[in-house]
Simulated assay, not measured.
Amino acid sequence: MSRLKTAMDRDRGAQQAATGLVGDPLKLPFARILQEAQQIRVSEAYRRMVTAGACALTGGRAEALYLDTIGGLNAHDLDVIVRAFRQLVVDMEHRPFLDLLGPLYMEIGHKLDKQDRGEFFTPFCLNRLMVDLMTAQDPRAMFTPGEILTANEPACGTSGMVLAFAEHLTNHGVSPLHLRWTVQDLSQTSCYASYINLTLWGVPATVICGDTLRMTVNWAWQNVHWHQAKPWPTAEERRAHVAEVMRQERFLRVFQELFVGAA
């Protein structure tokens, strides 16, 4: 219990100091824009935003779905969708690795529908606690030199757990590019939201929409970072990196002595 309280206090303090609490998801700037929709409900505006946004991040591989998603919207609501996605990117920059799409999805969705589908949002502090329990003190101990670590999240929702893991790595000086995730969920909307979260935060991932228990796959998208993933460096590569850093530092000192000092 004390560990949970510590994680919750840390989560609260970090968000207040660096990012600000999410609080009411409906009051997030991008959520306020979605509520300006006139032709469709907010829940439908959310669905179209995450679907179209995910399509846009595929680099043109989902153009048909993108056009189908925005089809039938009047000019006002189309503008709402576009502005909301742009604002989402800004909101995410102010709240590093914090899942903003999950809380809003749960807030605007129909309660009975969520219960029927078994969808429940996990608070970010609990995601952080579970990451701490999985990785112990130093996450670098999980990696094998020369290999890319692989991980799976079979019921990812909007991938809040994966974002917490990426944040944990980053806080310990480890790039998320050393790990590849395969995440899966039955909800298409959640999968599109996951694709946005993981792509914008630079996490190599394959997002699968399908039933994990029945082992069915409706579709699977690899994001742009999947092929950018890199193995954990070997001892020789680490030594070479240190030597290169030292060489650059020596060059910089010489440059400063010759040119900056002379000026």
Rank of each mutant, 00 (worst) to 15 (best):
S2M: 14
S175D: 13
G71R: 07
V131H: 09
T212A: 15
V174W: 07
C191I: 12
D211G: 10
R10P: 06
D99H: 05
S43I: 10
F259G: 00
M8G: 03
M246Y: 02
P176K: 02
P231S: 09
G13H: 13
G60M: 04
R3A: 08
L78Q: 08
L198Q: 02
A45D: 02
L213C: 05
I40W: 04
A17Y: 10
M49Q: 01
H110F: 08
C191V: 15
H94L: 11
A193S: 13
L133F: 09
M142V: 15
G118I: 14
L4E: 12
V82I: 12
T122V: 06
G261T: 12
P25Q: 01
H94V: 04
N152M: 11
P123T: 09
V90E: 08
T150L: 12
L126Q: 03
K230P: 01
T182Y: 02
E244H: 11
A75H: 03
F143H: 06
V217P: 00
K230T: 15
D185A: 08
L65S: 00
R12V: 05
G71A: 14
A18S: 12
G261C: 04
K114N: 09
E244S: 12
L198F: 02
D113Y: 06
G60K: 02
V203L: 12
A18N: 15
R95V: 09
E93V: 05
E93L: 10
M215N: 14
H178R: 07
L169H: 13
F124E: 03
F30S: 00
Q222L: 02
G210K: 13
V183E: 03
A62Y: 00
V183I: 07
Y192H: 02
I148T: 14
Q248S: 06
C156A: 15
W201R: 14
A205G: 02
R214H: 03
P123G: 08
M142S: 12
S175F: 03
R247D: 11
R128S: 07
G202D: 11
N218G: 15
H225K: 05
L65M: 06
V82N: 05
H94F: 05
T150V: 14
L28C: 08
S194N: 06
E153W: 05
A37E: 08
G173V: 07
A141K: 14
L129A: 07
D138E: 15
Y195C: 01
T199E: 07
R214N: 09
R239I: 10
M130E: 07
T135L: 11
L98S: 04
M1C: 00
L129T: 04
R239N: 11
R238Q: 12
A45W: 00
G53E: 01
G60W: 00
C55I: 06
D9K: 12
A193G: 11
L100F: 03
G60P: 06
L100A: 00
A62C: 01
Q38R: 15
K114W: 05
E44Y: 01
R247Q: 10
M246L: 12
H168G: 10
T206K: 08
R250K: 10
I196F: 02
Q115T: 11
A205H: 01
Q16T: 13
A243R: 13
R238E: 05
V254A: 06
S175E: 08
D185H: 04
R48K: 07
T58R: 13
L213T: 14
M142A: 15
